[in-house]
């Protein structure tokens, strides 16, 4: 599926003065896929077809990201994003859902699992931000207010493409990178992404550390074990802190494990959502 097809399948929900775009495919128990920075819901395009065979797959673009609201003057923190997911679930009539999340989307998911536990059936986080693992240097720099003036949208995309390449085990093709970054190719998109980066705040994961042992939702932690952005040691710590959590290391995968090893990741997630044991030689 190319990004245009994905975009044209997105639905929209108005939440107060803001709106979010989201994919809604398949039937069955709902699973919400939450992307990270600096991408959008298209991150999940390779995983969606497999999951949609057994689940209702919902993949929102977080506020300020992708084709959700990119206007000015609203909070883009992971705390606000978790509240947004909560409000959006109400809006579309979903009481509980499985949550599958990556990068800062994982931070949103951890906040949902600790602060809105009634919303979460099963939790799967992938190379997630947690504790003090973030923001990584590149995003810290990108979120500086002067970035707006220093980088045109075109230069920002060139820089982000270079950075993103390090998130893959095998060099991705240009078309994939372009598709992951396409919402940010305009000046408005660039500015929105800078604001998103400026809103990254470690305190929003460190403050829930003490709550992690209280998570009751069955939890799977998938980790592209060669990730340079979010090191696997954080996954190990999460597996120790969340009761019953299973850590699965995905070989030959870095940060974007669902694109490095789409079949393996789809298999693990599908099995986990069905309540089956996730079989792997690399389980941590």
């Amino acid at each position: 599926m190319n990004w245009r097809e994905f975009q044209s399948m997105q639905r929209v929900a108005q939440l107060g003065d803001r709106f979010i775009s989201y994919l809604d495919e398949g039937t069955g128990e709902p699973v919400i896929l939450i992307h990270g920075i600096p991408v959008w819901g298209y991150l999940w395009h390779a995983l969606t077809p497999a999951l949609a065979k057994q689940n209702r797959v919902l993949a929102p673009d977080l506020l300020g990201f992708g084709y959700s609201d990119k206007s000015d003057c609203f909070d883009r923190s992971i705390a606000r994003q978790a509240e947004m997911i909560d409000a959006w679930m109400d809006k579309i009539g979903i009481e509980r859902a499985h949550i599958v999340a990556h990068d800062i989307g994982g931070g949103v998911a951890l906040r949902l699992a600790t602060l809105f536990p009634h919303r979460v059936m099963r939790l799967c986080v992938m190379n997630t931000v947690c504790y003090d693992s973030w923001p990584i240097e590149a995003m810290l720099q990108f979120g500086h207010p002067e970035t707006r003036r220093k980088l045109s949208a075109a230069s920002a995309i060139t820089m982000l493409k270079q950075a993103l390449k390090q998130g893959f085990a095998k060099s991705p093709d240009d078309e994939l990178l372009d598709s992951l970054l396409v919402p940010y190719t305009t000046e408005v998109g660039k500015l929105s992404l800078i604001r998103n980066a400026a809103a990254l705040n470690t305190n929003l994961t460190t403050e829930i550390t003490a709550l992690l042992p209280k998570i009751e939702a069955p939890t799977l932690i998938l980790w592209g074990e060669d990730d340079l952005f979010q090191l696997v040691k954080y996954g190990e710590r999460l597996a120790r802190d969340i009761p019953g959590a299973q850590l699965v290391r995905v070989k030959d995968a870095r940060h974007f494990l669902m694109l490095d090893q789409p079949d393996e990741v789809a298999e693990h997630v599908s099995a986990f959502l069905k309540g089956e044991q996730v079989e792997t030689a690399h389980a941590g």
Partner: peptide, 13 residues
């Protein structure tokens, strides 16, 4: 002030 629901003036190059 900008109305809360006004679309940002996003445009291609």
């Amino acid at each position: 002030g900008v109305p809360a629901r006004m679309y940002p003036m996003e445009m291609v190059s």
